[in-house]
C-alpha cells in the first residue's frame, strides 16, 4: 500500500536525476526518517537539482538560501525589526521557517552562520531575543556542500556534521546519461513541471510507517558487530557513537521501506552505512578528512554478516 507511493516518488525523481536511482532512494530514505540531508560533491554534479526535485516531489513548501561568507545568522533565522511607526519590535521569520530549507554551499558561510542553522536543525525551533518560534511540522534541511579541499570554505566541524542523518555524494553520471545531457537535455527545465507525487497525509503516513519496519535480533547483532568493529579496530580513531548507531538503524528501516520491504535485511544496513557513517568516522591515518569512505569499505568487508554477536 505504501509501495505505489514510493514507486511514484522514485519515478518522478528519476526523470529529473537520470541514472541516480541509488542516491534517490537514499535521499528519500533520509527524508522519510525525518533526517536532514547533506549533499556533497563538486559543483555541477546535480546537487541543487536533486534538492529542488526532492522538495517539489514531496509537495513541501521550500526556500533556498545561497550561503556566502557574508551571510549573517539573521539572514537565515529571521530578524527583529524595529517598526518606527508603532515604535515596537516585531520578529520577521527568516527562510528557516519553511518545510524544506535548501542550504546551498553551506560550507561557504562563516562558522557562526552555520552554527545558527545547525542549532535550528537540532532543536526544530528558533529562539530569538528570548522568544521561541517552533519550526513547521515537516522541517528538512537539504544542504549542499563542496568538498573541503575547495578554496575559501569553512568546513563543517565534526560535531555539526553529526546533525545530518546522511551525507550523499552524487558522483559523475554514467556515459549514457551524460550523453543525453550533452545533447541538450536540461534537467532543470523539467524541474519546472514537476508535480508533487504525494500528499501531506500520505507523507505523514509514510514517515510513521518507517518506525514499524521490523528489525530482528539477528539484524541488531549485525549492527552491533559493526559498531563494535569501529570501536575496537585500530583503523578508527573514534568509533561510531550510540547516536550514530541509532541513525543507522533508523535509516536502514527507511531504506527497507523504500526498497519495498517491511523488515530490514543486512543489505539495507550496508546501503545506508556509507551515507550515515562516513561523515562521522575518522581514521587513524586521516589527515585529509576523507577517510570515511575507506573506513566504511573496511567495515563492509570485515564485519561478518552471519555470526554471533
Amino acid at each position: 500500500m505504501s509501495q505505489p507511493i514510493i514507486d511514484r516518488l522514485v519515478t518522478a525523481l528519476g526523470t529529473i536525476l537520470l541514472g541516480k536511482d541509488g542516491q534517490i532512494r537514499l535521499a528519500l530514505a533520509c527524508l522519510l526518517s525525518r533526517g536532514h540531508l547533506l549533499l556533497e560533491d563538486l559543483p555541477g554534479m546535480g546537487k541543487t537539482t536533486l534538492s529542488h526535485a526532492l522538495a517539489k516531489v514531496l509537495g513541501l513548501e521550500y526556500q533556498r538560501i545561497q550561503f556566502t561568507s557574508d551571510l549573517l545568522p539573521a539572514d537565515i533565522i529571521g530578524t527583529t525589526l524595529f517598526n518606527p511607526g508603532q515604535s515596537q519590535f516585531e520578529f520577521r521569520k527568516g527562510p528557516v521557517f519553511s518545510e524544506v530549507l535548501l542550504a546551498d554551499e553551506i560550507n561557504r558561510a562563516t562558522p557562526k552562520t552555520q552554527g545558527a542553522l545547525l542549532e535550528a536543525m537540532e532543536e526544530r525551533q528558533v529562539t530569538v531575543e528570548g522568544h521561541s518560534y517552533p519550526l513547521p511540522h515537516q522541517f528538512f534541511v537539504i544542504a549542499t556542500q563542496n568538498p573541503v579541499t575547495q578554496m575559501g570554505t569553512f568546513p563543517l566541524p565534526e560535531s555539526q556534521l553529526d546533525r545530518f542523518l546522511m551525507r550523499i555524494s552524487l558522483g559523475y553520471p554514467d556515459p549514457k546519461v551524460e550523453r543525453a545531457l550533452l545533447k541538450g537535455k536540461n534537467p532543470r527545465d523539467e524541474l519546472e513541471f514537476l508535480q508533487p507525487a504525494v500528499s501531506k497525509t500520505e507523507l505523514d503516513a509514510l514517515q510513521k510507517k518507517v518506525s514499524t519496519v521490523h528489525v530482528s535480533d539477528a539484524l541488531l547483532d549485525y549492527v552491533q558487530r559493526i559498531l563494535a568493529h569501529t570501536r575496537e579496530s585500530s583503523q578508527f580513531v573514534v568509533g561510531l557513537s550510540p547516536r550514530a548507531g541509532m541513525a543507522l538503524v533508523k535509516s536502514a528501516r527507511a531504506f527497507a521501506l523504500v526498497s519495498g520491504r517491511e523488515h530490514v535485511i543486512p543489505e539495507d544496513v550496508q546501503a545506508v552505512l556509507g551515507p550515515v557513517a562516513e561523515h562521522r568516522l575518522s581514521g587513524s591515518r586521516d589527515v585529509t578528512g576523507h577517510e570515511g569512505e575507506r573506513l566504511v569499505d573496511h567495515v563492509l568487508k570485515h564485519v561478518p554478516v552471519i555470526g554471533s554477536r
Binding site: P266, E267, L300, K301, H302, V305
Partner: peptide, 9 residues
Amino acid sequence: RQPGEGPQS
C-alpha cells in the same frame, strides 16, 4: 561468499 557479503547481494 565474502564474510561481509549479505545474503541478498
